[in-house]
């Protein structure tokens, strides 16, 4: 049953990704991207990951889409230009070959939901067995995130702060610098 829901959502997801690829109207693309993220959040719920689903629903459908819309508004570009000169054959061949290689690579993977596969044996089994006992926190995602992998999370939070500082440095000053005019005026 869960596999059927999973596959249905994945087919919708593929359709949504193709719609993002095909649409020329960029505002429509932003809304389709929000829908894509909402479908991914639904898939995370089916895959037993409500923590990730929370984040994806708020980030993908909310913040990412709003940032995309704000970028579109500030660059004043509503439509994508049809560029005929650029060849589409080479990217298509690269993507098909890479996709085929990745699909060939999955034949080695355990089937979806196989409890005896390698990722569930070593460290994950230890977390499930001892996690609550050692940290006193029943939500293992929080326990692993904050306690066992505290260094990792410290790094991630620093990356978020650094990206914020980067955006402030790029867009913070109100004076607009035009590279072309400067180059021509020399």
């Amino acid at each position: 049953m869960s596999l059927a829901v999973n596959l249905l959502l994945l087919v919708f997801l593929l359709v949504m990704a193709l719609a993002v690829l095909k649409t020329r109207h960029l505002f429509a693309m932003a809304m389709l991207f929000g829908l894509y993220s909402l479908l991914v959040a639904g898939l995370f719920v089916v895959l037993d990951a409500p923590d990730v689903a929370f984040t994806e629903a708020a980030v993908g459908t909310g913040i990412s889409t709003v940032l995309m819309l704000v970028t579109l508004a500030s660059t004043k570009s509503g439509h994508e230009l049809v560029s005929s000169e650029k060849s589409r054959a080479a990217p298509l061949i690269i993507c098909v070959v890479m996709g085929a290689l990745l699909i060939y690579g999955t034949h080695d993977l355990a089937e979806l939901g196989d409890a005896s596969s390698a990722p569930h044996q070593e460290v994950a089994a230890r977390y499930i067995e001892k996690g609550q006992e050692e940290t006193g926190v029943p939500n293992l995602v929080t326990a692993v995130l904050a306690s066992y992998r505290g260094f990792d999370t410290l790094g991630e939070v620093t990356v978020v702060l650094t990206a914020g500082i980067g955006v402030l440095m790029l867009l913070g000053n109100r004076k607009k610098l035009r590279v072309k005019e400067l180059a021509n005026g020399k």
Binding site: A49, T55, V59, G60, L67, V144
Partner: peptide, 24 residues
């Protein structure tokens, strides 16, 4: 398995921050 969920949870938030840098 909680481990992939933990790793990807942080990756999503970092991902939106870096995408915002791209938009900037």
């Amino acid at each position: 398995n909680p481990l992939p969920q933990v790793l990807m949870l942080t990756a999503i938030v970092v991902g939106v921050a870096t995408t915002a840098l791209g938009f900037a």
